[in-house]
């Protein structure tokens, strides 16, 4: 238990260090890229240890309580971002936008109760992994797009324009961002399909418009609207960026907010 808490805290410290370096790097026009990558990877490794220790202690994966959901999502979002950071060198400064977004999740994670939960019978299925897995890829892809969008928006002011001047043009950032949004749509759709199959399996209905399903659908719809708008109306890059933020905010609230205000991951689970 103590080791678990310790490695989680150290992981958060490493993530925060990576985030601070990313911000300093932009503000002071310095290249800390290797150190940022190092701290992100160290954080990820420590985080993996914390998750594994808890998994062994409680004998179930991190998907029951709010704390576990936040922790495992933070882990996968970090993992996606590290892969992106490693592969897409020209847009690495987007870490200065993405990591602070993840700080919100970290703070939230540290403040919710860390107690163990109970596994409902409907969780004993492969659909759990498929459904959650697709959801994580979806959020990871949108997060990367948020990074691009953040730079586009910051560039609207002279300071941002100067600080991000050596990055690719807004046109190319927008293009890259919407590629990730396309990936997000595919995985969001897969998540909804897998969720419906699971719900059918567990409760004898595939879609019941419970609060979580409703918000998941609205997130999907806003993502579709964003892609349709971009394909049919000439959006400005800034407008495109705000649409990305809207999808991320909705996805974020659906994943973490709705289970928080309604009493269970899905209403049909307990009773």
């Amino acid at each position: 238990m103590e080791q678990e808490q310790l490695s989680l805290w150290l992981a958060v410290v490493a993530y925060v260090l990576a985030g601070m370096l990313a911000i300093f790097g932009v503000v002071f026009a310095k290249k800390y890229e290797k150190s940022i990558l190092f701290f992100m990877c160290t954080g990820l490794a420590l985080h993996a240890v914390a998750i594994a220790l808890r998994w062994i202690r409680l004998e179930h994966g991190p998907y029951l309580t709010m704390f576990e959901i936040l922790s495992s999502n933070l882990f996968t979002l970090m993992l996606f971002f590290i892969i992106f950071y490693w592969r897409y060198k020209p847009v690495r400064p987007s870490a200065a936008v993405v990591l602070p977004v993840l700080f919100i999740m970290m703070a939230w994670m540290m403040f919710v109760p860390h107690d163990a939960g109970m596994i409902p019978a409907s969780f004993d299925t492969i659909w759990l992994w498929i459904h959650i897995g697709f959801g994580k890829v979806f959020m990871g892809a949108v997060l990367v797009a948020v990074g691009m969008g953040g730079i586009i928006v910051l560039r609207q002011c002279a300071w941002g324009e100067r600080k991000f001047s050596n990055l690719p043009s807004n046109e190319r950032l927008d293009d890259l961002a919407f590629r990730f949004m396309a990936v997000a749509l595919i995985f969001d759709s897969l998540m909804l399909i897998a969720g419906a199959l699971w719900a059918h399996d567990a409760w004898g209905r595939y879609w019941g418009w419970d609060p979580l399903e409703t918000w998941a659908f609205i997130t999907w719809l806003v993502l579709v609207i964003a892609l349709h708008l971009r394909a049919t109306v000439k959006l400005s890059y800034e407008q495109g960026a705000y649409l990305i933020f809207a999808v991320f905010a909705l996805g974020f609230l659906t994943f973490y907010g709705i289970p928080f205000i309604s009493d269970a991951p899905h209403q049909g689970t307990f009773g």
Partner: peptide
């Protein structure tokens, strides 16, 4: 028209919320 599609998407979203 594709503008109609966008309006209908919006209509659908509002309808889903109203449904509740």
């Amino acid at each position: 028209s594709l503008k109609l599609t966008l309006l209908l998407f919006l209509f659908l979203g509002i309808s889903v919320v109203l449904w509740h």
